[in-house]
Design a protein around this nucleic acid. Structure first.
Length: 507
RNA sequence: GCCGCGGUAGUAUAGUCCGGUCCAGUAUGCGGGCCUCUCGAGCCCGUGACCCGGGUUCAAAUCCCGGCCGCGGCACCA
C-alpha cells in the first residue's frame, strides 16, 4: 500500500472514530445557557496576544465555540491588545493563537483586533463624558488616595464641557504618561475600592513602548474593562463565558452599560483549570525559557501545558475538547489529571496508530536456527491486510530488550520461539500454539540489519527521560508528526526524522 | 486584612435550583477474570465519595446556621 493510500485509510478510519465519538459526546450535552435563543447566541473568545494559549485558555475558547454551535449562533475571536506597555502583545502571537484555535477545531465566525478600534473607543468615551458619566482626572496618586478613603478626586465634578476639552488634550498628546486618566463615575463609597471610579483610559508613551500592530500611532489607550464593555456591546455578544477572575470586572463593566443604556450580556464565570504536572503560567514559562536557553524546545515544548506543547506531545485536539466539555462550566476549580487526558487520548489513538517494534534498552544477540523464517507482521492488530515482512535467517543479529532477555525463553512476536542460551538465541519451535502451551511471554524485537536508532523522549515534569533505542527500519515510511504505537512501550509521535527523535505521548 | 465564590470516590463529573425515585450514576485509576501473537484496545466482575458539627423535616448530598479547607478579586494588567 502506498503512503497515499495509507493516509486515506487512516483518514477514513479517523473519520469513523470522529463520528463515533460525536455520538458519544452528544449524549453528554452541555447544560443550557440562560436566556439563550436558537439562532441568536453570540459568544466570543478574547485572548491577549502576549503569548500562546494554554489548555486553561482553551476552556473559554472551546466552550464559547460549542455553545455558539449548539444554539446555531456565532462566535467571535477578539484580540485584546490594549496594553502596549505592561502586557505588550507579541506580533507572532496573533497567528499562533489563530493556528492553535484552528487545530482545536474552533472556527470563529468573525475576528476583531482591539488596537485597530481605538477610534471607536474614543467616540464612546466622548459620549460618556457628554452624559456626565466620565471625567478626566489629573491628580494622579492623590486621587487614588482620596478614593481609597471614600472621597472624590478634585476633578470629579467638572462639567462635561471641561472634561471634553481635557479629553481632547489627552488625545492630542498634550499630557505625558501618568499625568491624566479618564475615570468612570461609579460610587466613591463602593465597598470594593477598585470599583470606585475605575480608570477607563490612560496615556502610554508608545514611542518608548510601541505596539506591535499600530506602533506609536496612539498614546491614549482604553483599559480592559472599558474596551471589553464597548466591544461586547457593539459586537452583539449575548453570552460571555470567562474565568471567575473576571467576576469583579463584570461589576465594573455594569457602570458602562447603565450609563449608555445598553443591555448587559449574560455572564458565566467558571473556575481555574489546571493540568496536573504541567506548567501553564505564561510568566513562568517565559522565565525558565530565558534563564535556561537551550534547555527548552520553544513555547511548544511538550513539557508545557500550552496548546502547541500538547499538540507536539501527540495529544489529539478531540481529546482536549472531550475533557474540556467534561469539565464544563462549573465555578469550582478543576485539576485535570494527566492519566485522564492520556486515557482519553489513548482510546482515540489506538485505532489509528500503526504498531512498530522499538527496543528501548537494546541488547544484540545472534540467532541460531535451521532455516530462514519470514515474519508477516500486521501494522495494526485490527487491520491484518496491512503488514510488513521481516525475514530472519541463521546467524542474523537481533535486538532484544535487556529485561526480556532475562526471561530466557520467550516468543519473538510473529516469528518463532527461542531460548537464550550460551549467549545465543536458539530456535525452539515456530508455532504460537507452542508458546501458549508453555505460557511463554511474547516479546518484541528488531532485526539489526534492518534497524534505525531512535531517541524517544518522555516528558517528566521539567525533565526528559531519554530512551536511546532501536526501531524497525520500517519507520522511514512515516513522516514528522506521525503517531505510532511502539509495541509494549507506548504511543509516540515522530518529532524529527533525521536524526530520528520522537516523544512518548503516553504509555 | 477586606470583599466575593466554592467544597460529591485518587482525579474529573452527574445529582443540589423544585428535599424522598441516591444505602449516590458515569468516566478514569486500582484489583480480579475473559479475549488478544503488545505491558495497547475491547468485554465482564469488583473497589472506592456526599468536608466537619449542629438545626429544620416523617425524610437532607440537596434547605438553614456555625466551623474548617480551597479558590478568585482588591492595578493607569488582561
Amino acid at each position: 500500500m502506498s503512503l497515499e493510500e495509507q493516509k486515506k485509510e487512516i483518514e477514513s478510519l479517523g473519520l469513523k472514530i470522529e463520528e463515533k465519538k460525536k455520538a458519544k459526546s452528544e449524549e453528554k450535552l452541555l447544560p443550557p445557557l440562560p436566556n439563550a435563543e436558537i439562532g441568536k447566541v453570540v459568544t466570543r473568545f478574547a485572548p491577549n496576544p502576549d503569548f500562546v494559549i494554554h489548555i486553561g485558555n482553551a476552556r473559554p475558547a472551546i466552550l464559547s465555540y460549542e455553545y455558539a454551535k449548539m444554539y446555531n449562533g456565532k462566535m467571535i475571536l477578539r484580540f485584546e491588545d490594549t496594553d502596549p506597555r505592561t502586557k505588550t502583545p507579541i506580533k507572532e502571537a496573533y497567528d499562533l493563537i489563530r493556528e492553535d484555535l484552528k487545530w482545536l477545531g474552533v472556527k470563529p465566525d468573525e475576528e476583531y483586533i482591539q488596537s485597530l478600534r481605538l477610534n471607536i473607543f474614543y467616540e464612546i468615551a466622548k459620549e460618556m463624558i457628554k452624559k456626565g458619566c466620565a471625567y478626566v482626572d489629573k491628580s494622579g496618586d492623590e486621587s487614588k488616595k482620596l478614593l481609597s478613603n471614600g472621597m472624590a478626586p478634585p476633578n470629579r465634578n467638572s462639567s462635561p464641557e471641561e472634561n471634553m476639552e481635557e479629553f481632547e488634550k489627552m488625545l492630542g498628546n498634550y499630557y505625558k504618561e501618568g499625568e491624566a486618566v479618564l475615570r468612570i463615575k461609579t460610587d466613591v463609597n463602593h465597598p470594593n475600592p477598585s470599583i470606585r471610579d475605575w480608570i477607563a483610559f490612560r496615556l502610554i508613551d508608545t514611542s518608548a513602548h510601541p505596539h506591535p500592530i499600530v506602533g506609536d500611532k496612539y498614546v491614549l489607550w482604553p483599559t480592559y474593562n472599558f474596551a471589553v464593555s464597548v466591544d461586547d456591546h457593539l459586537l452583539g455578544i449575548t453570552h460571555v463565558l470567562r474565568g471567575k477572575e473576571h467576576e469583579l470586572n463584570t461589576m465594573k463593566q455594569e457602570y458602562i452599560y447603565k450609563c449608555m443604556n445598553w443591555n448587559m450580556p449574560n455572564y458565566i464565570h467558571f473556575g481555574r483549570l489546571k493540568l496536573e504536572g504541567f506548567i501553564m503560567s505564561k510568566s513562568y514559562i517565559r522565565k525558565i525559557m530565558s534563564e535556561n536557553p537551550g534547555n527548552f524546545l520553544g513555547y511548544d515544548d511538550p513539557r508545557f501545558g500550552t496548546i502547541s506543547g500538547l499538540r507536539r506531545r501527540g495529544i489529539l485536539p478531540e481529546s482536549i475538547k472531550e475533557v474540556i466539555l467534561e469539565v464544563g462550566i462549573k465555578i469550582g476549580d478543576a485539576k485535570l489529571s494527566w492519566t485522564n487526558l492520556a486515557s482519553v487520548n489513548r482510546k482515540k489513538l489506538d485505532p489509528i496508530a500503526d504498531r512498530l517494534m522499538f527496543v528501548s534498552k537494546p541488547v544484540k544477540v545472534t540467532v541460531e536456527q535451521p532455516s530462514c523464517i519470514e515474519a508477516k507482521i500486521p501494522l495494526h492488530p485490527d487491520k491484518p491486510e496491512r503488514y510488513r515482512i521481516i525475514k530472519v535467517c541463521n546467524g542474523d543479529e537481533i535486538f532484544i530488550d535487556e529485561n526480556d532477555l532475562k526471561l530466557k525463553k520467550f516468543r519473538l512476536m510473529e516469528l518463532a520461539n527461542y531460548e537464550y542460551k550460551d549467549g545465543m538465541l536458539k530456535f525452539v519451535s515456530k508455532g504460537v500454539q507452542d508458546a501458549r502451551k508453555e505460557k511463554l511471554q511474547i516479546i518484541h524485537w528488531v532485526l539489526a540489519k534492518d534497524s534505525k536508532q531512535m531517541l524517544i523522549r518522555e516528558p517528566e515534569g521539567l525533565q526528559f527521560k531519554d530512551y536511546n533505542g532501536i526501531v524497525e527500519n520500517y519507520i522511514t515510511n512515516y513522516n514528522k508528526n506521525a503517531r505510532l504505537q511502539f509495541l509494549r512501550f507506548g504511543f509516540i509521535i515522530i518529532d524529527n526524522v533525521n536524526p530520528l527523535i520522537g516523544f512518548l505521548t503516553h504509555r
